[in-house]
Design a protein around this nucleic acid. Structure first.
Length: 286
DNA sequence: AGACGTACCTGACCGC
DNA sequence: TGCGGTCAGGTACGTC
């Protein structure tokens, strides 16, 4: 369940290992991910240098430079787009045996190997030119970055417009705001004391401001502690040693509401909203 | 257009 | 032990 904080953690873990490195060889085990791996991916990557590793929402972007190109033309420079989907993982190793579901292995000239492992294959590993980035269906329609200054209560309200769907669903929509998934939506709504089933259009200016602050705060906190470790999500170096973030609401069905642990009626409740589990305190969240 | 349900996929977990 | 059922969820797509 890599959401923004997990992807950012992966980015930070990966960066010192791969920035400036040249891709020596690429091994692809299967091409049929959610978005098919381009047939020429290996050929296209080989020999290119990874100049920077960036993130946009839940997407990871590797900007490449091609040493064989005499003139560096920004428009034709390649960019790798990686989405971890639900179960995707990027690993760094020097001599790890091949694991089940290692779909892509990339040898770098520093002797390290990057592996893309994704059991459920909901993720993708794509490449396109800088000039075609604006055509990418996911990237081109993605909403604002929640941690950037431009993401304000007013900005959120304008993204929502007149939409009447439950706020929970709206916040999961990557066109509204980038990077949130089920967990951090639940946490942000709990923190801002807003009910997940409220029609998005009923958000007041004050609610929207509080919600934006809550979104920033839960994401920032999660990045600080290195992304939450839910199920088998791991840092790129495979370490599991970093600690689990304490969720206030998510996964706490029937536990006391952390804000009012001794008040009767304040109890975290699980309910299913359009097929997904929502955890909230019906007494706090209005 | 927007809201909503479902498909995709595999591993973990549960009850029998 | 093994087997079937259910759940997890990001995104795309079909339907109303």
């Amino acid at each position: 369940m890599p959401e923004l904080p997990e992807v950012e953690t992966v980015r930070r873990g990966l960066q010192p290992h791969i920035e400036g490195q040249t891709i020596k060889a690429v091994h692809i085990a299967r091409y049929d991910l959610r978005r098919p791996i381009p047939e020429d991916l290996g050929q296209r990557l080989t020999g290119q240098q990874i100049s920077s590793v960036k993130r946009r929402g839940k997407l990871l972007l590797w900007h490449l430079t091609n040493p064989s190109q005499a003139i560096i033309n920004d428009e034709t420079t390649d960019v790798v787009l990686i989405h971890l989907g639900m179960s995707g993982r990027l690993g760094i190793s020097t001599d790890l045996p091949i694991q089940k579901h290692d779909h892509i292995r990339i040898e770098l000239n520093n002797g390290e190997m990057i592996t893309f492992n994704d059991p459920r294959r909901f993720g993708f590993f794509d490449i396109c030119s800088q000039g075609d980035l604006a055509l990418d269906p996911l990237l081109s329609t993605m909403g604002p970055e929640p941690l950037e200054d431009a993401f304000t209560g007013a900005a959120l309200k304008s993204q929502i417009g007149k939409r009447s769907a439950p706020l929970k669903n709206i916040l999961l929509d990557q066109h509204i705001v980038a990077g949130l998934g089920n967990i951090y939506v639940c946490e942000a709504l709990y923190k801002s004391k807003i009910a997940p089933d409220r029609p998005a259009s009923t958000l007041s200016d004050e609610d929207a401001e509080r919600l934006v602050m809550a979104i920033r705060s839960v994401l920032q906190r999660a990045i600080e502690v290195g992304g939450s470790t839910l199920k088998d999500h791991r840092k790129p170096d495979g370490s599991t040693g970093y600690f689990q973030i304490e969720f206030q609401a998510y996964g706490r069905d029937q536990e006391p509401c952390p804000r009012h642990p001794d008040t009767p009626g304040h109890r975290i409740t699980k309910k299913v909203q359009s097929g997904r589990s929502t955890f909230y305190c019906p007494a706090c969240q209005k």
